[in-house]
Nucleic acid binder design. Structure first.
Lengths: 187, 187
DNA sequence: CTGTGATGTGTACGGTCGTACAGATGGTGT
DNA sequence: ACACCATCTGTACGACCGTACACATCACAG
């Protein structure tokens, strides 16, 4: 593996791209805007990322790794003594309250997979990552359903601008958890 | 209300914009591409829709009206004898199988509200529209949760490219329905 | 019948974009 | 020491974009 002249150049471009998406949205991301934000010449971004899709793949992967760390750091999700639904609802509240822009950034990159097949494998990693963590507390089918419900609740809050209702989230997440292991659950 | 020289001009532009989004995605929508698709001059699209946001608002509203008609036409959702979760899961299956591109079109416009405040009120109408229909079969909290779960399940299928699993959808939707009217449900 | 305002049309300007490329630069293996 | 190649840089081109504007056209009130 040959060393680089500027070994952090590629990484700095990814970080810059994430800042651009956070500030101006995916529509504002271009080789030029990322280059300007990273303070590197245009040719440098086109060299490291031949297409914008490549840059978005790198950004989404990095965002998801950061997300996974935040989830892992919140130990409550792994503690078998805790109420899984309540833990999830509380964590969503913190996530959304802490910095809604950061959540928007993650979802914008994640949802971009809708029209960009190149992003789909990475998007699949994102859902599987959270589902895998939840699988340590419940069965895989319930875990996948919880991920879907978390996405739906977050999106409802973000898309309509409505405030996050933690009691509501805890209640409905609890219903999915409560049904774990019943008839026809596939497990 | 003054009549128009070409009373259908505006409507034709909206239809063209929806075709453009369906074929090339929101990123491919511009005053020019919509004008070309509608076979009208550029100045006509800029006259009727001062900004692209206005055009997207009109397109999303129209897509939602079409969606509401499809939902209403499927009477099973209103029949109190039917299994609500099974009806919903079957309807999602038909929707996704019939023409996945059409579903992508709807979700792409709907999700665009994430970064475009102008679309948020219309996005809110979309969720409330379906929630209102479901409210005739269950309580409002459960209805809202079902909408969130439907969105999450559809998005998981669309984003990851995975096939739609109707049995799974029926099972987890059923859990949410089964919990209706319990403790702390807010109703 | 005529004025007036809404609607339709064509063209042009300045800006941003992806892409391409030729040359500079400095690691790295031999 | 030398050559090779990954990396870096600046510049240019053609395409597309939103916007603006002057002028044509038509419905309708008076």
């Amino acid at each position: 593996m040959p060393r680089r002249y500027d070994p952090e150049r590629r990484q700095r471009i990814i970080d810059a791209a994430m800042r651009v998406v956070g500030e101006k949205g995916i529509a504002g991301l271009s080789h030029r805007s990322a280059a300007a934000e990273a303070d590197v010449p245009l040719g440098s971004t086109t060299y490291h990322f031949k297409t914008l899709d490549e840059l978005m793949v790198a950004a989404l992967r990095q965002a998801n790794e950061g997300f996974a760390k935040v989830v892992a750091a919140r130990g409550g999700l792994e503690d078998p003594q805790s109420d899984l639904a309540a833990e999830l609802a509380a964590w969503m509240g913190e996530w959304l309250a802490d910095d809604r822009t950061a959540v928007e950034l993650e979802y914008e990159l994640y949802l971009a997979a809708l029209r960009r097949p190149a992003l789909r494998p990475v998007a699949a990693e994102c859902t599987e990552g959270l589902a895998e963590v939840l699988s340590r507390r419940t069965d895989p089918v319930t875990a996948r359903a919880l991920v879907a419900l978390v996405d739906g609740i977050c999106l409802q809050a973000l898309l309509t601008g409505a405030p996050y209702d933690e009691a509501y989230a805890r209640e409905v997440l609890g219903r999915v958890v409560a049904g774990a292991g019943r008839r026809g659950a596939g497990e």
